[in-house]
Design a protein around this nucleic acid. Structure first.
Lengths: 152, 152
DNA sequence: TTCAAAATATTTGTATACCAAATATATAGC
DNA sequence: GCTATATATTTGGTATACAAATATTTTGAA
């Protein structure tokens, strides 16, 4: 195998490994739903609301990169489950503010933060220099994809 | 910042970077649907079918880790779009084999392989040693997540 | 000041993706 | 041959997602 095809094979395996991570995260999402009776999008919304105490529907839809009607539906289900409350704005009565209830906070604490749990544990076990190397590698990948930083 | 909190920060950033990659891939999936009138799951199924020329519905459902009724529905839509054909097995007439049409093959060629496009391009531009380093790093992450290799 | 335009949410309609249970058909085993 | 098993499809249910239509409130301009 020459130098060039070796590189191609390396690239193929990188994509392959990343695909595996994505698959694992999808499986996680299904497990989450079974175990905690909450979906991925719902938990994501709940966390975003909790971060800022209260947030309008339109702001949340921007943060989640989803249509406002989609987020309105997600809010319906979170409200029905008692995880959030809707409150009409007093100053501007067009606005609806969402905030997390105690039950919602409990859910945030109980539900695993994401499928990254095992990965985090693994990273904690290896030397910091190695962690640093991995960080540099992934950062480079992100740079290549030219993605904006919109994750908190 | 001491050694330990430095490591914690590194780990946080690794998770953050991976989340960014995931977000970018989600955005890609939406773009895909708009531009090529095909969804992520449909394109995924199409590729899996193309890999093996023909495949039964149950085999495909196993490969995709989805319920067979789900895959039956995806096959409905791929068939309606003319991307695949269903063919009853001759030996065992319970089995339905799926195969990709010329139109389906064209779709596979036209649609970007995934959101990884830019990443692949970026990887091709850097020296093989660097690619090797990245590969090692990601492999380690996969190992930590204990994911099975089920991606081709 | 009044009235049209803009902003914010919700509702309605459509499509996809999931799963599970029920059903139909075909094969296999006793 | 008849029952159990295997393979797909259909049906029913929920969630996600978007766009268009609607309702309400605010803003801004004549």
């Amino acid at each position: 195998m020459n130098r060039n095809s070796e590189k191609k094979e390396n690239i193929r395996q990188i994509i392959n490994s990343l695909s595996q991570i994505l698959n694992a995260l999808n499986s996680f999402s299904k497990e989450l739903m079974k175990t905690f009776s909450i979906t991925g999008p719902q938990l994501g919304a709940l966390r975003k609301i909790a971060q800022v105490q209260q947030i309008s529907l339109s702001e949340l839809s921007q943060k989640m990169y989803l249509h406002i009607s989609t987020v309105s539906g997600i809010a319906d289900r979170l409200e029905a489950a008692g995880h959030i409350i809707r409150r009409r704005g007093t100053e501007d009565r067009r606005v609806v503010y969402l905030s997390v209830t105690d039950k919602g906070k409990e859910m945030i604490d109980r539900a695993p933060h994401s499928g990254f749990g095992k990965m985090v544990h693994g990273l904690e076990e290896i030397p910091v220099e190695k962690v640093q190397q991995i960080q540099d590698a992934i950062r480079l990948l992100v740079k290549m994809m030219e993605v904006k930083n919109n994750v908190q």
